[in-house]
Simulated scan of single mutants.
Amino acid sequence: MKSIFLIIFISFNIMAQDIINGDIQIAKIESKFAGTLTVDSKKREWLSNPSDENIKFTIVTAGYYKKGEIILRNDFNGDIDEIIFKVINGQYKKEKISVESSKVTPPKELLKRIEEERNEANKIYSTKTHGLKFNTTFMLPMDSVITSEFGTARVFNELVKSYHSGTDFRAAIGTPVVSSNDGIVVIAKDRYYAGGSVVIDHGEGIYTQYYHLDKIGVKLDQKVTKGEVIGLSGATGRVSGPHLHFGVIVNSVQVNPINFIKKINALF
């Protein structure tokens, strides 16, 4: 049968599409043809498009270290369509950052705290609350210059420790930070690496992160609306100076927040 996917214009039952490591692609389908959906053989659910009841969609994520291919399959009463996503390297840059030595190699007495904070966050990100909590486009958490892009290899005190899992915005201490969209606060606390942290659940495995805050203005389980001030920027946690770190998690995968906003907003 003719392909029912709308993500690209090629009309075949098997299609190819590139996806950059650390990025997303959105596949859309007419609601009446939405069948059993799998991504790399793992079952997923088609999501209702908030702006068009005749269209459903899913977000395909490629982790930063992902290589090879991702296969999306829709089985509609035995008629199968596939999109094969070829993962391509994002050619990310490196940057050197000087921070307190304890933020690169933490004291042994703090390792338990760090592990507990990591486990708490991972448990939250692996949880998918049913239904999207937003029905409008996403917005940036502040209007400012980007000082560090997603995916950059982070060289802390001459040691490659990680990659940049979000986007940094220039922000003096005390600059208001707003929620990117409607949702529920699932983290609101000080953490060792992230400092003052707010994480918002937007439903269906979509989370936004706001780190290094000087002041947290929301509480756990609080409902927030798009554009609502959730805190003030700062220089807490592992930083070289004041700024806002903004991140996005989708289906437990950290993705490029700027590209996520551009692509999810195209649904509206």
Rank of each mutant, 00 (worst) to 15 (best):
262 K>I: 01
181 N>F: 07
86 K>T: 15
15 M>W: 00
182 D>S: 12
251 N>G: 14
12 F>N: 14
178 V>H: 11
200 I>S: 00
34 A>D: 04
228 E>Y: 03
238 R>N: 04
105 T>L: 11
173 I>N: 13
2 K>E: 11
5 F>D: 04
196 G>Q: 03
241 G>I: 05
140 L>V: 03
234 G>Q: 09
230 I>W: 02
224 V>G: 04
125 Y>Q: 02
254 Q>P: 00
268 F>N: 14
78 G>K: 04
171 A>N: 10
216 I>G: 03
200 I>Q: 11
17 Q>N: 13
42 K>Y: 01
235 A>Y: 02
46 W>M: 08
125 Y>P: 08
221 D>V: 01
35 G>S: 06
233 S>I: 03
130 H>W: 00
108 K>D: 14
219 K>L: 11
242 P>G: 10
266 A>D: 15
36 T>W: 01
185 V>C: 08
206 I>E: 07
169 F>L: 06
56 K>A: 04
209 Q>Y: 13
229 V>A: 09
138 F>Q: 05
172 A>I: 03
117 E>W: 05
82 E>Q: 15
130 H>Y: 10
14 I>N: 09
65 Y>F: 14
203 G>K: 10
159 L>G: 00
229 V>Q: 13
197 S>R: 12
81 D>Q: 09
54 N>C: 03
15 M>K: 14
69 E>R: 13
36 T>R: 13
238 R>G: 03
145 V>S: 09
40 D>C: 06
264 I>Q: 06
65 Y>A: 09
63 G>S: 15
99 V>D: 07
36 T>K: 15
188 A>D: 03
111 L>Y: 05
225 T>R: 12
266 A>P: 05
166 G>F: 00
199 V>M: 10
188 A>W: 00
163 Y>N: 09
201 D>M: 08
90 G>I: 02
199 V>S: 04
156 F>R: 08
72 L>S: 10
139 M>Q: 13
262 K>C: 01
3 S>D: 06
131 G>I: 03
227 G>K: 10
93 K>V: 02
47 L>V: 12
226 K>I: 07
158 E>G: 01
229 V>P: 05
187 I>C: 01
52 D>E: 11
227 G>R: 07
95 E>D: 13
125 Y>L: 13
204 E>C: 11
244 L>Y: 05
157 N>I: 04
98 S>V: 13
52 D>A: 08
162 S>N: 15
164 H>T: 06
83 I>F: 07
66 K>Y: 02
154 R>Q: 09
151 G>Q: 08
94 K>E: 15
148 S>V: 00
261 I>V: 12
115 E>T: 14
34 A>M: 02
25 Q>M: 09
53 E>K: 14
126 S>E: 15
21 N>T: 05
52 D>P: 08
105 T>V: 14
193 Y>P: 01
172 A>W: 03
203 G>L: 12
230 I>M: 08
205 G>I: 06
236 T>Y: 06
19 I>S: 08
118 R>N: 11
210 Y>A: 07
61 T>C: 13
98 S>I: 13
174 G>D: 13
157 N>K: 10
250 V>A: 07
84 I>Q: 09
107 P>S: 10
5 F>I: 07
224 V>A: 07
167 T>D: 02
99 V>N: 06
209 Q>V: 12
131 G>M: 06
47 L>N: 03
64 Y>V: 07
24 I>G: 06
102 S>C: 06
161 K>R: 15
14 I>H: 02
120 E>G: 00
74 N>G: 05
213 L>F: 08
146 I>N: 05
